[in-house]
Design a binder for these strands. Structure first.
Lengths: 228, 228
DNA sequence: CTCTTGACACCTAGGTGCGAACTT
DNA sequence: AAGTTCGCACCTAGGTGTCAAGAG
């Protein structure tokens, strides 16, 4: 497991567990009480049940659904940096079997793509600012270009990833780097896992994207099957 | 006169004069050396020669040309807030005489609109960040709605205004507010003055807007008179 | 009469999946 | 055969001046 696993209904209690128990005392008070709730979790779960796929392109592609969270429990006056990264779910490469409509292991993972952090563009900001409205990572883009210099997140196609969200308290104290491990808290939502692809494999994923992403409205039909 | 008057070719030397002479020593070193250069000054001057008009609407309208500046002389590591405001050029209300194609005084100014400051959305940021590229106020909007709650700049139609630009050093020292007057520097560019209007009065202004604003391309003709 | 408002056609800017062409 | 790339039509989102209608 890569960090705490959260699901829709119990997100708050489980994020609590991330720093809970005997470990609580090792975290700074500015982050120990932070709670994070995933927005659009119903949509995320709908995708997750089919096996979420995210397109990666050379120039960079947005995620859909967008990763958005509601935050509580920050120190309103303290300064925080918010960021995301993506970690491989396993060390496997996959391929899609159309005849059985399922993903099969196709060998060991390719060499790992350069690991990057995506800082939320409003960083740094005070807790009060982050908490007063949904925090959206809608400008984050995924690419399969190993040489990307636009600051996009580099992923290997046909590999599975788990998005991670990090809350970092900007400690004004001198030598605060010595306590760096105390000043951040990380959150993972199981239903946001996805397969990186250059073209959609599962036709039902395509249909759900078309049905739910406003920018794909041009591909919608009057067919009531839209909702599938 | 409302602050230093700057024109195209001597912007640097004249902004220098803003804090120049015996007053120089009264400003904090973080702002005393700041220099500001107006971008697109050739276009601004073209408008100014005709008598610039800016549309104000209930929902808010962007300025065109956009107010953009190139900054130098900041302390790269110091933190600054950048902001704009608009001050009445005089206490007069105007009307446009179509037969003579000129603006006439139409009495005393209306009651002053609520005076607001527009903070550049990237504020606060370090000097190095502000200086490394053009600072643009393209999201700033003008409105004639006295009850506006979208944070737009409220102006009276048929009144003349002078945009002002302020550089404020964020002084980390305790009780820095006691020295607040030392920590900012203001800049006015004469060629950015304009008349606020709800509809364009001078037809040549309309034509120059159509010719130079990309969003008005739909109104361009193949006529070579475009450049007038 | 002067001035303001709002619906409108026409743009810019950029996010979609499609499907043919390309690569391996 | 499997996977990637790219131009495209079709959208969202929102910035233009126009013009007819409205307000005072």
């Amino acid at each position: 497991m890569d960090g705490p696993v959260l699901s829709q209904s119990c997100a708050l209690s489980l994020t609590c567990c991330a720093d809970g128990g005997s470990l609580l005392s090792t975290k700074a008070p500015q982050v120990s009480g932070v709670r994070v709730q995933l927005e659009m979790h119903a949509l995320w779960q709908q995708f997750d049940q089919l096996g979420t796929e995210m397109i990666v392109t050379k120039t960079g592609r947005r995620m859909f659904p967008t990763f958005q969270v509601q935050i509580s429990g920050m120190d309103p006056t303290a300064e925080y940096v918010l960021l995301m990264d993506f970690i491989p779910v396993d060390d496997k490469r996959y391929r899609y079997a159309f005849h059985s409509s399922s993903w099969l292991v196709a060998g060991r993972a390719d060499v790992a793509a350069p690991s990057r952090m995506h800082f939320h563009p409003d960083s740094p900001a005070r807790g009060a600012q982050w908490m007063k409205q949904t925090v959206s990572f809608d400008t984050l883009k995924l690419t399969n270009n190993l040489l990307d210099d636009n600051g996009h997140m580099i992923l290997n196609s046909m590999h599975r990833y788990q998005p991670r969200f990090h809350v970092v308290y900007v400690d004004p104290a001198p030598n605060s780097h010595l306590n760096a491990y105390r000043n951040f808290s990380s959150f993972s939502f199981h239903e946001t896992r996805f397969m990186a692809v250059t073209a959609y494999q599962n036709h039902r994923i395509t249909q759900l994207k078309i049905a739910s992403n406003p920018f794909a409205k041009g591909f919608r039909t009057a067919d009531p099957q839209d909702c599938w």
